[in-house]
Design a protein around this nucleic acid. Sequence first.
DNA 1: GCCAACGTTGGC
DNA 2: GCCAACGTTGGC
Length: 151
Amino acid sequence: MNYWLVKSEPDSFSIEDLQARPNQTEMWDGVRNYQARNNLKSMKQGDQVFFYHSSCKVPAIVGIAEVITEHYLDPTASDPEHSGFDPKHSEEKPKWYVVDLKFKQRFPMPITLSWIKQQDALKDISLISKGSRLSVMPIDADHWHYIMTRV
DNA sequence: GCCAACGTTGGC
DNA sequence: GCCAACGTTGGC
């Protein structure tokens, strides 16, 4: 099993929104960066995913989701009415994918970015590696477990 | 293939 | 709102 982190702006889609979805599950669409897309494609059913709130007052990991459906074609990329529409994406030549994520837990206290930056044990975490703005990134098991001791 | 211009992300 | 650090686009 592998560990991941996905970012979302809580104003657009928060972990509370995920929890409120039917079956507590949401199609994770809109990834339009190749590296993030490749990470998405590597996700396996049962993988655990940190849910990170970005571009907000207190950027933080706020809980955990689980991969319940592995990657499939992103329907929003084929929809001209959708903001994620990409004319170069097609079923014959697919570019973009989604996975289905299911809510697992919300942390009693968010694990804030500022705290993460203070931890020597987390100095190599992908989240704060130089210039990493990926919306989907892998998390080392060591980093995952270290953070979980803090929850 | 190079690289300038432009767009996006996301912390602060 | 600012701006650094990217990624992408497109002319050449």
